[in-house]
Simulated scan of single mutants.
Amino acid sequence: MRLTPEASGVFPIAPTPFMPDGAVDWNSADKLFEFYADIGSDGVTVLGIMGEAPKLEPEESVGLVKRAVAKMGGKPIIVGVSAPGFAAMRSLARQVMDLGAGGVMIAPPPSLRTDDQITGYYAQAVEAIGTDIPFVIQDYPLTLSVVMTPAVIRKIIQDNPSCVMLKHEDWPGLEKISALRKFEAEGSLRHVSIVTGNGGIFLDFEMERGVDGANTGYAFPELLIDVVRLSKAGKRDEAHDIFDAHLPLMRYEQQQGVGLAVRKYTMMKRGILAHNAQRKPGSALSAAAKAEVDYLLARLAKHDPRADI
């Protein structure tokens, strides 16, 4: 299924499962995508920043896309295709779309500084991959160091009809969401899907500001689905109640440098991944950190039985 501007819901960022020796754990990859489909995800994102995409060989990247397409039951697969050069970006984008992906996600390189550089980069990227491929803007200044104002995002969207989604993970970013939706209400911005990242840590109020869902990772993606569903149903207190129960673990997982290690450790304990390994270079949890995660899970289980592991 191709990604459209009407896309909504939860598109979890899939971590790449590895064996302890660094090889891709293909059995866990199959199980992971089956899990995302079974819990009601609206799609999935592969080869994202938290998917350790730069550590993969080209054939491994393609293999993960093939498995996602095979296991997700026709739901849109978003593939991160960011690359230092447009030739590599074009090659991967065309290849994954031929395999059945729904669209691609493009992050700006950290060297961009001015508004003209940012909008010019996206124009060149679209020219490189082709205007027939739906694409997602990744706005992640905390990691990428590229600051996109609402006006810059509007220009990228208006100038490039193949842009169908914004992955918004600015921090703080609630006012940016409101500004973009105001542009849309005034008629100066066509509608595109807005989904948010940052591990879901602001999803409760992001939904209330008008986003369409989440495109992020968390060891309990079911929680993201719950918050989006309850928020859309107008059940504000219920959405905040379940969100608040998970917030201590979400906060712990949001730590720079060890967040992926926390997520993989929890998903291993849940039986979703066979191992919590990262491909080198990568971080590892100390015994003290694992004990802290275990404690947070035990506390969470008092409110959400899915954490009783």
Results as ranks from 00 to 15, higher is better:
R90C: 12
R90S: 14
S91V: 14
S91T: 15
A93V: 08
A93C: 09
A93L: 05
Q95H: 08
Q95S: 11
Q95C: 12
D98A: 14
L99T: 11
L99G: 01
G100H: 11
A101Y: 09
A101W: 10
A101C: 10
A101I: 06
G103H: 00
G103A: 00
V104Y: 00
I106A: 03
I106T: 02
I106E: 01
A107C: 13
P109Y: 09
P110Q: 05
R113M: 11
R113N: 11
D115P: 08
Q117A: 01
I118W: 05
T119H: 02
T119D: 02
G120C: 07
Y121P: 02
Y122I: 04
A123V: 09
A123P: 03
Q124I: 13
A125W: 06
A125N: 04
A125K: 04
E127Q: 15
E127G: 12
A128V: 15
A128P: 05
G130M: 15
D132W: 15
I133M: 03
V136C: 00
V136K: 00
I137R: 00
I137C: 00
I137S: 02
D139V: 07
Y140Q: 06
Y140K: 05
Y140W: 10
Y140A: 09
Y140L: 07
P141G: 01
S145W: 09
S145K: 11
V146P: 02
V146Q: 00
M148V: 09
I153R: 04
R154I: 11
K155L: 09
I156Y: 02
I156A: 04
I157Y: 11
Q158M: 15
Q158C: 13
Q158G: 13
D159K: 04
D159Y: 10
D159T: 02
C163V: 03
V164A: 01
V164I: 04
H168L: 12
D170K: 00
W171N: 03
W171L: 06
W171V: 08
W171Y: 09
P172A: 05
E175M: 07
E175I: 08
K176H: 10
K176M: 13
I177N: 06
I177P: 03
I177K: 01
I177E: 07
I177A: 04
S178Y: 03
S178G: 01
S178A: 04
S178K: 04
A179E: 10
L180V: 06
L180S: 05
R181L: 06
E184I: 02
A185K: 08
E186A: 11
G187P: 10
G187S: 14
S188W: 13
S188Y: 14
S188T: 15
L189N: 03
L189P: 04
H191K: 12
V192H: 00
S193E: 01
I194L: 10
I194K: 02
V195N: 08
V195Y: 07
V195D: 03
T196R: 05
T196F: 14
G197H: 13
I201V: 15
F202T: 13
F202C: 07
L203R: 05
L203P: 03
L203G: 04
F205G: 05
E206C: 05
M207V: 13
E208N: 06
E208A: 09
E208K: 06
R209G: 05
R209P: 00
G210V: 05
G213C: 08
A214H: 14
A214G: 14
N215G: 10
N215I: 10
Y218V: 12
Y218Q: 11
A219K: 02
A219N: 00
E222S: 06
